[in-house]
Amino acid sequence: MYNTTYYAATSLADAAAKIAADGDAKFLSGGQTLLATMKQRLAAPTMLIDLTKLPELKGISVEGDRLVIGAATKHAQVASDATVKGAIPSLAGLAATIGDPAVRNMGTMGGSLANNDPAADYPAAAMALDAIITTSKGEYKATDFFTGIFETALDEDEIIVKISYEIPKKAAYEKFRNPASRYSLCSVFAAEVSGGPRIAVTGSGNEGVFRVPAMEEALTRGWTADAVTSVKIDPETMLSDMHGSAEYRAHLVAVLAGRAVAKAG
């Protein structure tokens, strides 16, 4: 790891001021991606501004028809928290599939969303559950937040504070892992929210997480696995790499969507 300095931010304003003063600084949350990247010398921020001590980024609560989770909440907390399990069990279940138990004890929801890895799990939940992402500067709908692989609408000095998910009528997450890396090769979050059915896919899209309007439309005529498995996905929109071709991933989307819809019941 190249040399860096560590700073524990004391408030949102303090964190924003620090990053404004140093263009090569980066925000640090659980560090399970950033520190690993720095160790490989693929990133060399001059300063790490730790956001995890900020009280604004903590807490889990139900507010009306929404579940609100602080950005610094660790995956292990989301997976085991009684409020999350009660409100959106599929979200707790998703959190329990991220990384491994030790990674889940450090990695955070805000960190995962801000990084927007094309194989990350939370972006699929955010898209399917009509999440609202509250930052130090404003609010984003999930559909406006994810702008491409490792890209989001966040400014350099903007901090995710909390994420609110609509509590769905029903929902399920189906994850298909690469057997070696254990990352999603294709995973689908299916949900029925007040706006209608939602199908969100991670791990497969060549622009990152995406929704499948044709599948959502088909589900409005009846919540069955057959409604989605017959929808053809264009391989042109899929990632293609040593782990799986675009055609293979396009096929997986339909198969996994069918499983997720069936699991949601």
């Binding site: 560090g31 399970q32 990674v103 004890n105």
Partner: peptide
């Protein structure tokens, strides 16, 4: 491995298992 995959560096921090090769001491 030094890439947070193998788990040989697992210790407990405040009672929870973490990979000590992917945590700054200062953190």
């Amino acid at each position: 491995c030094d890439t947070s995959q193998c788990g040989a560096c697992t210790v407990h921090i405040d009672g929870n298992a973490v990979k000590s090769c992917t945590v700054l001491a200062a953190q």
